[in-house]
Amino acid sequence: MGSVLTRDVLVKWAPLLVLIVLILFFAAMEPRFFSVRNFARIGISSAPALMVAIGVTFIIIMGSIDLSMEGTVSVCAVVFAFAFIAMGGTLASFAWLALPLALLVGAAVGLLNGLVHVKLKIPSFMASLAMGFVGTGFALLLTGGDRIRVEDDLFRGLLTTRWFNFPIMCYVAVAFLLIAWFIQTRTTLGRNFYAVGGGEDLAHASGLNVNKVRILGFTLAGVFYAVGALLAVGRIGIAETATGSNFMFVSITSVVVGGTALWGGIGGVWNTLIGVLIVNVINNGMVVIGLPGYVQDGVLGVLVIAAVVLSTDRKSVTFVK
């Protein structure tokens, strides 16, 4: 056993194990937790978070970080809502064009993030944090602090129409998860993410245009944030400046808890799925067993520290800032 149960194996399977233990724990505490109805609830809260977390997964695989998601999600949500209503306000009209428009806006914001980070040579955490503030400010500027209601029945069908007890938004999220998986494993760009994260010197020396990969990575992340924004609007039927709030903490926590190492090169979108489920099972489970909601941020904080500690190979890290 000793040789099989190495640190690598443990790190690889620990997130899934944690998820299973959590589900069993909450199910034992409160049988109502283990019901299709409750799983659908977890699915609904996970779907937007999963999209945002997948976006940042690509960035973290490269060894960078993106903290701009709150601003990007808000901007995409607000632009989508304005365009959707201006073009007819129902999916049955030309207003469906607002969907691809939102994705384009996400890509543009992501591209801008990447350019600020790469061209101005600012560390990504700070460049993206600053851009996130700019994004939230821009969303506030567009809305003037108002909430925009999106009440089209067809669009709200994301939440209200259910196939096999799960709303459509869950299936949309799974579809984009598969797309992300395809990008990660079957495209040059996806492999280049790992090359950059595994060792930038080496990637650069083998002739890879590292800067281009970085900028494309941030652009791709922006597209996934936009999908997250659409699902978030579909879920509550409102687009506002606060649509993006809390996504930063939750998505970073999910990615890291899922087992994608902050140092880059390790992990992927399936890890992120597990991470998002862990976070949402905890959030849901604590409410179901009657714990107050405010414990969540503290628990997630402790969890994220534990996950980073577990995934850090102490021999290869000399000092951190």
Binding site: F249, Q296, G298, L300, G301, I305, V308, T312, K321
Partner: peptide
Amino acid sequence: VTTKLLVPSFISTLAIGGVAFSAAQYLSGQ
């Protein structure tokens, strides 16, 4: 957490910020 557990400070302080936020909500009764 940053120096001994080798967690980069932007993550460790973000996490501790979460703990502080929980504590504030608990103490204030929201």
